[in-house]
Simulated scan of single mutants.
Amino acid sequence: MLSKNTICLWYDGSALDAATFYARTFPDSAVGAVHRAPGDFPSGKEGDVLTVEFTVMGIPCLGLNGGPAFRHTEAFSFQVATDDQAETDRLWAAIVGNGGQESACGWCRDRWGLSWQITPRVLMDAIADPDRAAARRSFEAMMEMGKIDIARIEAARRG
């Protein structure tokens, strides 16, 4: 059963594949109900997967196989707070290594075009440091990275 507030993500026929990948990759994630179309629709036929209910890290989502009309953009992303470099590396490698694409400042895109921010908690603490010089150094270090390197952020913060 859908939550009162659910994120609907548009896919071009691959909602079940995406939901299965997210459930395999992220903790507290699962695929729920798969609903098939009761009739033909613009991007599919009766019996095709129309929607998939799933959760990503406890967030209820609905994957809609709406066809090629709309694409994901960086205007929407999941931000994943990681606790250490091993978790950062694992999630980054899972997304990028599964047909995804690296971007800047901890951002990457999965093979379905959905953006992810793989953000170590250390980074968020560093750029919010009350010592503005330490925050600036941390921010400048981040701006040069794709995947976030916690050791480099910590070194920049220390000066």
Rank of each mutant, 00 (worst) to 15 (best):
L2K: 04
S3P: 02
K4V: 11
N5V: 15
T6S: 08
T6C: 05
C8L: 15
L9Y: 05
W10R: 13
Y11N: 12
Y11D: 11
Y11A: 13
D12M: 10
G13Y: 07
S14I: 14
S14P: 13
A15E: 11
A15G: 10
L16P: 10
T20E: 09
A23R: 02
R24Q: 15
R24K: 15
F26K: 05
F26N: 03
D28A: 12
D28K: 10
S29R: 03
A30Y: 02
G32L: 01
A33Q: 13
A33M: 13
V34C: 04
H35N: 15
H35I: 14
R36Q: 13
R36K: 13
A37F: 05
P38L: 11
P38K: 11
G39V: 12
G39W: 07
D40H: 08
F41E: 14
P42R: 11
G44L: 06
G44S: 12
K45I: 12
K45D: 12
K45Y: 06
G47P: 07
D48H: 07
V49A: 10
L50D: 09
T51S: 10
V52M: 06
V52W: 02
F54S: 06
F54I: 10
M57P: 01
G58C: 03
G58K: 04
I59R: 07
I59D: 04
C61N: 04
L62M: 14
L62E: 10
G63A: 09
L64E: 11
L64P: 07
N65T: 09
G66S: 12
G66H: 06
G66I: 09
G67R: 11
G67H: 12
P68R: 14
A69K: 14
A69S: 14
R71M: 15
R71T: 15
H72F: 14
T73L: 03
T73P: 02
A75L: 12
F76W: 06
F76K: 08
S77W: 05
V80T: 03
A81E: 14
T82H: 05
T82V: 09
T82Q: 06
Q85E: 07
A86V: 09
A86F: 04
E87Y: 03
L91F: 08
W92K: 02
A94N: 09
N98L: 09
N98H: 10
G100V: 10
G100W: 04
G100A: 06
Q101L: 14
A104Y: 11
C105K: 04
W107K: 04
W107P: 01
C108D: 08
R109C: 13
G113S: 11
G113K: 11
L114H: 09
L114A: 13
S115N: 15
W116F: 06
W116G: 03
W116V: 04
I118A: 07
T119D: 14
T119S: 14
P120N: 04
P120T: 03
R121S: 15
V122F: 02
V122N: 08
V122Y: 04
V122D: 13
M124F: 01
M124R: 00
D125Y: 00
A126F: 01
A126S: 02
D129L: 00
A133P: 00
A134Q: 00
A135W: 00
R137I: 00
S138P: 00
A141N: 03
I148E: 02
I148L: 07
D149E: 11
D149C: 09
I150E: 09
A151K: 05
A151Y: 01
R152Y: 00
R152C: 05
I153H: 00
E154H: 01
R157C: 00
R157M: 01
R158V: 04
G159K: 01
G159D: 01
